Simulated assay, not measured.
Amino acid sequence: MTVTDTPQAATFRRQVLSPVKLRLFLMRKLPMAWLAGLRLTQLTPEQAVVTIRFKFLTQNPFRSIYFACLAMAAEFASGIQAMMHVQAGSPVSMLVTKMEADFTKKAVGRIAFTSTDGPLIAQAIAESRATGEGRTVVCTSTGLDEAGDVVAVFRITWSFRAKR
């Protein structure tokens, strides 16, 4: 499915891709993400890429990134796509209802989480607006280290329901 880019989505994307505006948004709405240093490096109607670095505030006792920080970056990769697609019409509530993860390698350095589920998210939001019923989407966020090795794969179930 191809996703059409709306003017509202393009405006939202321009704002959150600005490092200063993203930091202000994170400070106001997601302060833990701001403290952890999440960065949005790419956002299109089809995919988003969010990075997190190993540093003092994200570390665990085993000298790698704490799993909760990885989960936050993975969730943000799909969540920012959902927020962008919600901008294009009537209000839609969104909520994480389930999360599963597979960890395959120690997370050190810079980890980039990519979610390519924009078309599925857009379709679920459109269906919810059309029917007034809730829709769920399982989004996959894959985290790669600087060498390109898979560190973790998260499957986040999002629920969307159009507000009436």
Rank of each mutant, 00 (worst) to 15 (best):
S159N: 13
T41S: 08
F154Q: 08
V151I: 03
R23H: 04
P119N: 05
M27F: 12
Q87K: 13
T44E: 03
A162I: 01
M83V: 00
A48L: 00
R161L: 04
C139Q: 09
S90I: 07
I121N: 02
L120F: 08
A74R: 01
F25Q: 11
P61M: 04
E100D: 15
G109M: 03
E100V: 06
T157K: 10
M84E: 15
R135C: 04
M27R: 14
T44C: 00
L38E: 01
D102T: 10
V138N: 09
T142M: 13
A130D: 09
V153T: 15
F54P: 06
S128F: 06
D117H: 13
Q81D: 09
F113W: 02
I65N: 09
S141L: 00
W158C: 00
V153A: 10
V86T: 06
L30V: 03
T114A: 06
S115V: 04
F76W: 14
M94Y: 14
K98E: 12
P61W: 14
P45D: 11
K21L: 09
V151A: 07
T157A: 05
V137W: 15
D149V: 06
K106I: 03
A112R: 12
A48P: 00
S78M: 01
F103C: 11
S115W: 12
Y66S: 07
F62E: 10
R28W: 13
A82E: 07
V92E: 05
A33E: 00
Q123M: 14
A73L: 04
V151C: 06
G148M: 05
G37T: 01
M72L: 15
E127Q: 15
I156E: 08
T136I: 06
V108G: 10
E133V: 03
K29R: 13
G134N: 08
T51P: 06
L57F: 13
A101C: 12
F67H: 14
T116Y: 10
A147R: 14
K21S: 09
T41C: 03
G118Y: 09
L40N: 02
